[in-house]
Each structure stands twice: as C-alpha cells, then as structure tokens.
Write a protein that binds this DNA or RNA. Structure first.
Lengths: 119, 119
DNA sequence: CACGGACATTGACAAGTGTCAATATTGACG
DNA sequence: CGTCAATATTGACACTTGTCAATGTCCGTG
C-alpha cells in the first residue's frame, strides 16, 4: 500500500471493500464508507453529479451548473466542493472557468459495494 | 399507478428511475431519491444493514444487533426505525422478539441507479 | 495598472441529526 | 394479575448541515 489510510479520499477507501450484503461490515470500514454516501445524500448534490455526468464531453462549467438551480452561487460552490473532496468530481481550472468532471470509477465502486454486482 | 407518489416509500420511489449518469436528474426525482441515500449515509446504519443482510437466514433479532454496538438500545432502535421507514429493512414481530430482514430489491435498485448497471 | 467577471471562502443562522436517560408498551410466564 | 424481559417512544442536548450575504481571489482584457 503506497498511501496510508488517512490520506485516502473517501472514494479510494471504498474501492477495496466487498459488498455490504456479503459479509458484515467492520466498524472501521463503515466509518470510511459513510462519508462517501453522505456526499451524495442530498438532492442538490445528486442533481449536480447527474448534470456533470450526463453533460456533453462529460464535463460541465460551474456557470452552467449555477443556472440549473435557484440557489445562490456560493451554495452551489459549497456542494461542488463536497463532491470534489469526496473524490466523486474532478476539478480543472481553464482560464477563468472551472470545469468539473465525474470520477468514472467512483460511483461504480459504490454501486458494487451496495448492490453486490461484481462487473 | 395504484399509489400516489406521496404514499411511496423511498425505495419504491427509486425503482422507476434511470441511472443518474445517463440523463440529468429532475429536481423532483432528486428529492425522492435523496432520503433513501440519507438512510444509508451513516456508519451505524451501514453496519446494521450489513449485519442483517449477512446474517444466517437473512434476518436478525434486535437483541443480536444491540450486542454488536457500543451504543444504547434506544439508539439502535432509532436507526432501525429509519432503515425500516426508508423501506430497506422489513420488520416482523415474533413473540417478544423483533426480527429485521433486508428488502432484497431495495439496495439493488439503488445500486443500479448509481452505477448504471442494468442487470 | 485598473477594472470586471468567474468562482471560492467566511461568518452567521435556522433546521436537521445522533445520542442518551427516562419512560412507555408489549408479550411470555409464573 | 404481577412481574420481567424485549423493544419502542419521548424529551433533551450537542453537533452537523444547508443556505445566504458579504467579501476575497484569480485571471483576462482594455
């Protein structure tokens, strides 16, 4: 292992675990997984994730995302930060604009963890 | 449709939707899905779900579950109630004991929603 | 350099959440 | 019926979360 557990993003911490229905989750594993689930446990963040993922070229500018909600710009920025910190969205600044792109493996790992579908 | 949307448990409300990465989630869909995700966005509830699912016969008595945590009995009861109300756990009273059993389709629907794996 | 626009950060506040102690409810059994 | 054990409910509390207004930072352009 090249990184200590404490350095892992929530997404990285999840990728290693077997499905929750297969065997009882350890307390430590549950503590690592919960933050990732929390990150998508909000309607605004679910929509943000969905908007980015389904956007052309798989990326979206913050300006587009702001327009999709009737929420203040700082609020959207806050949610994007949470998704980014969880490892679900990647962030790239190009000029004045910031583009977010989905981490392809993240949601799939989480889905596998929950559903036990080993693709 | 035999039930109005308001009568659906979170689980039932999710079963109908296409994966979040496929197309942008509507605000209404996100509002329906988020409560289900919230229900599993806690380390204790993740472990409870996992314990029940991986238990022999697929069901577990509350007394067993209490012993697995260093938390008070009312706290466990509270978490079980949330999981039950979300539709993730089914509840059956037999004598003095209460047994919880996992709703097989619930997690799978959620996993499909997240991962886009159409089994 | 100064200005303006895109995005992030800070601080504040109301609302929601996890926990426990105390108490209620339910059912088995003497 | 009375008691005990299993589970649920209530009330209280500290902590977290979602939101906004105000402000800061960064970068392109004139």
């Amino acid at each position: 292992m090249s990184k200590s557990l404490l350095e892992l993003t929530p997404v990285e911490a999840v990728a290693c675990c077997s499905p929750v229905t297969r065997e009882a989750l350890s307390a430590q594993a549950a503590e690592r997984i919960a933050p990732l689930v929390k990150a998508i446990a909000d309607p605004v963040r679910l929509r943000l994730l969905s908007l980015v993922a389904s956007h052309v070229d798989g990326e979206a500018c913050v300006c587009d995302l702001n327009d999709a909600f009737e929420l203040s710009q700082p609020t959207i920025s806050h949610h994007l930060k949470l998704l980014h910190e969880a490892g679900l969205l990647e962030r790239e600044k190009r000029g004045v604009w910031v583009y977010y792109r989905i981490n392809d493996n993240a949601l799939r790992d989480l889905a596998t963890l929950l559903g036990g579908v080993t693709v």
